[in-house]
Design a protein around this nucleic acid. Structure first.
Lengths: 199, 199, 199, 199
DNA sequence: GATGAATGAGTATTCATTCAT
DNA sequence: TATGAATGAATACTCATTCAT
């Protein structure tokens, strides 16, 4: 009864599946998950509505793959930044760079970020995938930090907390425009807090 | 042609409008905005579906009012806590209390929190209202803190940042279950960070 | 989540529900269950597609109600015929009348008859309803026959068998046109067989 | 533009076509015509979906070929039974055997039986094929019966009627479970009726 | 001939919103 | 004001059929 889902092995197919995920990623980012329909995704991907269901079980299944792109885009700049560090590391500069990167990423990904988080509450699969991907990133960052000589206790906990801080500050910075807040000074406080976590 | 929206003056009407908002709040919290329909809201509120549109322009308009409840519930415990403080204040104990409160609040409000945030990106009204309400809370907290002798520069910025931290840690604590994270130790780090912001 | 199904109490509503069932009955009869869509049913009934789901859980649920009409139409002529019998009863004439009636009924109901039977195999509810309605008719006929003095053993079994015979002969008579069959003589054989069941 | 339908001459092709028909027969029997899709048929037959349309014009065209299998399976046991008769023939035993066979056949073929009959009303081709195949069977049975000395008038008519009776009783026996019917006694009545048709 | 990926029209169902009463 | 029946546009998903390889 239920259609067979193709796991594409051939180049052309993989490309097509990627196009669909990319289209989903873009649309979810632009207008949100609930304001996007499958016909729009297909059209943007340049495929028929039918084939979408050849590669994905349902609309939610697209979100699951979009999630991977999101996490990749959201965190890989941080990894690259850490990779590019030269000894002796300057945590101050690192954090400036991280915040810059996070802000520009969040600018493009805010809607999908919320959609994904909202989804994760009602959808165990989304949640599980989210956690899995976050785990991956956290552990990678931990490896990098260790290899460049960072020595603090509770490293994973600190990294995770730092990621949360970066995330929420980016959000704050982009979307909230409280008149009584001086965002330049707030950013300084955030930076110092981040640094203090790793010394 | 478009129906007149009543701003209820009479007691009975105000009560009815409140019932609708309460029902909306509950349902959005339980299953999310997109998984709630107006018939359910009306039923839970004990009114007809038609009258909902007597008090609200559309479904989104209900969310706008629900927002007020959410912010009230999410932040008033903090205010109460600060009110109850006795000199000399013990920041450590305060932060423990704040986190406890925040976690239990977030437990019940996570879904609506995400729905609201998601909405705020595509909806300027939601966003404006959100900011307005957050402003209110932040300034109130600032007043309290000043009146109990907290003297740091950039108080508003620190408060706002602290609220973000509390928010994201609560979320983390409730929903993310990373096996390699020791949440007890993470909480300690968060607490210390919070304290360090105000000394 | 699932919509509330209205069980109409008021005249207007009952009328509307009946219109939908009637439209379903007609369309299922004309082109079959699978070749009818809900939009067509709504249109023929003169209502919106939405309200169909106010009265029925789904398309199949309409079929369940259509079933009642079908059984009523298919069997009530027989009951009337038996009612109209005068003593002493002439079984021969009765059977002629029954076959005449059955044939003309079957002419109009053949498609829905098949749709219903086909459905009954994969759908326990349809099956159950069918049996229930057939029970009702069989027992009514038994009562009538007893009251006019028919005295044979296994009355229910004979009635049921007779109904089967009438049914299948009607079908044969209308749809099968085997050149080597003389349907006038076949009908005589059927009539005699029916009579022999009740003497 | 419309594709040429191949009438396979080569062994391999005939085999492939047969596989498709067999798969169609099985699936239609198991879940019905409308609950079977062409992909399932192809998969079960071990061929590609595309090639199905090399041998058949459309899905309905498969049903037409399935029909032949159905009639073959449904009636050949009766022919074999008659073949196996030894003089002097015992009609009583024959009818017991026929009913036993019919019931077990119907058990496996009920769904396809209904699908076929339902189809035959809207589809002249199905109807024509059905009649043609029934003709064939009826005349074969007539030959057998004559050759073993059965001498009644209207033989074809009686055979046809008998086939109807057997068919509908099988159905009744398998699917209807009326509590007030004693199916053992009903079967006796049916058997006696069948016998009376041929003496 | 054969494959199976691709097409896109078709369909049941939902739900925000309106409106007759 | 209040009701809840009615509307109909919107949408996820299916599947017979085609076609590039």
């Amino acid at each position: 009864m239920s259609q067979e889902i193709r796991e594409p092995k051939q180049e052309r197919s993989i490309e097509k599946k990627n196009k669909i995920v990319k289209a989903g990623y873009e649309l979810f980012s632009e207008v949100g998950y609930y304001n996007t329909n499958t016909a729009q995704i297909a059209k943007r991907a340049g495929v028929s509505t039918g084939i979408v269901y050849g590669y994905f079980k349902d609309k939610r299944d697209i979100l699951l793959d979009v999630l991977a792109i999101y996490v990749e885009r959201a965190f890989s700049p941080v990894l690259e930044m850490i990779d590019a560090l030269k000894m002796p590391i300057d945590l101050h500069e690192l954090m400036i760079g991280v915040l810059d990167a996070a802000i520009s990423i969040h600018e493009q990904n805010a809607k999908i970020h919320e959609a994904l988080h909202a989804m994760s509450h009602s959808d165990p699969d989304v949640n599980a995938r989210f956690i899995e991907l976050e785990d991956d990133i956290t552990l990678k960052i931990a490896d990098r930090l260790k290899s460049i000589g960072v020595q603090v206790d509770c490293l994973n906990e600190r990294i995770h907390f730092a990621m949360d801080i970066v995330q929420s500050f980016s959000h704050e910075f982009i979307f909230d425009h409280h008149t009584y807040i001086d965002y330049v000074r707030m950013r300084e406080i955030v930076q110092n807090t981040l640094i203090s976590l790793f010394i």
